[in-house]
Design a protein around this nucleic acid. Structure first.
Lengths: 239, 239
DNA sequence: CAATAACAACCTGTCATACAGGTTTTCGAG
DNA sequence: CTCGAAAACCTGTATGACAGGTTGTTATTG
């Protein structure tokens, strides 16, 4: 019962790919927003004249990329922007040694010099407070590296959020996974407490500049921070 | 060795997620490189004590993110870094109106001002030639917008490649899909041939600066190019 | 009449099985 | 030793079944 004509164009990249396209196309043409429900698997099965197996693999693929949310019993829904897929791509690049940690840091530096400047210009008072709080928590927990790291990551993500451009947030957050794997190494090379506190001071300087609304100054502090971080990684011998 | 007991930790995030993790973990622990083969579905089925359905959905998910390559008859292999998943995330953000075209352009501007500077510093002669060629082809085909667009996209991707940082390439390429959807609109607002040729001239200036190895100049031309592009989009009323 | 509890209908998660059609391996004929 | 065909594997898709979660409906009860 093949009805779905398979014109000339497509040599047949597989039914699943076709189903994935049909679903994304559905989202587009219906103008669905995050939270809106998608057709059930059964409905899609009928519409595409393929087995539920195919439809399910398509849904599951979109779910893996976090374009849709799935949960048992409920129909799938359109998902809010999420960094899941991007993180996995970056991690894949790292673990298969197609990209290096330094290359990621170079990209981060480029992006975060911009996010920090935008944050200084556009942050709300609440956002400025959140950024400052992350910096403060880094200092207060500085004997516990794991905790410092989490606040460090939250610090950078908060700055990205304050840039009010979700694409920046998306990218910065995608890199957080890599950061979690290398952060401690950089921390250890900052052998003395003094070095470590100096690094935390750097974060406070950034937070202050954002609070003051000085994009130039904020960018300078951020650049300095990254230069030191990269140096720490190089000293530690990270390729 | 198996007996994946399922005792305490995970309440049950779904067997598929577990399988996905097992596969990525396999890639990591075995130190697999692009092109290396993964275990067959049957092998995974035995190792994880789950049905082939689950294993297949896991493989298919990774394939959708382009972390692995699948094809009929052959075992799946580790994939080279690819922009597929990232593109879909960005497109999803656009079509569900969670991000705007302007926001994407701001990110592109930020990134490409860096890639162009790096390209000026690190490009090989071959890469410089490829960049210049794309610019030339834009001029030669300037009566055919579609063709100009494709060379424009190739131009920017070639610059990213010449930065010798694949993470930049990844991101720039991920945005190409969005560019394809909005490029023509910007082109049309450049009503006169003169305007259009001026825009092409901008690309040639960038190519020249890269050839000369002048990162400062290259970045300036790139900034100017983006400012004009964004202005064109705004004039066209793109939100 | 309103609150609620039981139920029916629907939906997703997982499993088992089957078969078509690629790909790789093996092995025998020449 | 070479070459080609069968055998053994592997993925792609389909079908049917059942458990368990979710939701809307209905019947019971206060």
């Amino acid at each position: 019962m093949q009805e779905q004509t398979d014109p000339p164009g497509e040599p047949s990249p597989g039914l699943v790919s076709t189903a994935i396209q049909a679903i994304t196309q559905h989202i587009r043409s219906e103008g669905l927003a995050p939270g809106d429900p998608l057709p059930s698997e059964a409905a899609m099965t009928r519409q595409l004249n393929v087995s539920r197996t195919v439809v399910r693999e398509a849904f599951r693929s979109l779910s893996a990329m976090r374009l849709i949310d799935m949960s048992a019993g409920r129909r799938a829904t359109v998902a809010k922007l999420d960094t899941g897929a991007m993180s996995m791509v970056i991690e894949h690049g790292i673990t298969t040694q197609q990209i290096s940690v330094q290359q990621v840091y170079d990209v981060r530096r480029t992006i975060e010099m911009r996010t920090v400047a935008l944050a200084a210009l556009r942050r709300t008072d609440q956002e400025a407070a959140a950024i400052a709080r992350s910096a403060r928590l880094m200092r207060e927990n500085f004997t516990n590296p794991e905790t410092v790291m989490e606040h460090d990551i939250a610090f950078h993500e908060a700055i990205a959020a304050a840039s009010h451009n979700p694409v920046f947030s998306l990218i910065v957050t995608a890199f957080s996974g890599v950061t979690r794997r290398t952060w401690v190494i950089g921390w250890r090379t900052r052998s003395s407490d003094e070095d470590q506190l100096k690094m935390i001071k750097g974060h406070e300087d950034i937070a202050d500049a954002i609070l003051k609304g000085d994009p130039q100054l904020a960018a300078e502090h951020m650049a300095e921070h990254f230069d030191k971080s990269v140096k720490a990684l190089i000293d530690a011998g990270i390729a």
